[in-house]
Amino acid sequence: MSTLIAIGAGIAVLAGIGAGIGIGIATSKATEAVARQPEAEGKIMKILLLGSALAEATAIYGFVIALFIIILLA
C-alpha cells in the first residue's frame, strides 16, 4: 500500500515538468528581451517574476496533490 502511495505521489509531482519548461521558456524570452532592449530591464524583470510565480503554480498544485496523497492515504 505504502509503495503505491509513494508511486502516486511521485506521479503527482511530475506536474513540475510543465512548470519547469514554462519558466525556462519565459526566462529565455526575458533574456532575449533584455538583450534587445536593455533599458526596459526593470519592467521585464517584474513581468518575468510574476509570470514565473504564476507558472510555478502548476508545480505547486502537483506538490499539494502529492502531499494530499501521502497524508490523507497514509
Binding site: 510555478e56 503554480a57 505547486i60 498544485y61 506538490f63 499539494v64 502531499l67
Partner: peptide
C-alpha cells in the same frame, strides 16, 4: 481554489 492552493502550496513547499 486556485488562489488558495497556490498560496498554501508555495508556503508549505
Amino acid at each position: 481554489l486556485s488562489l488558495c492552493m497556490r498560496l498554501f502550496g508555495n508556503v508549505i513547499g
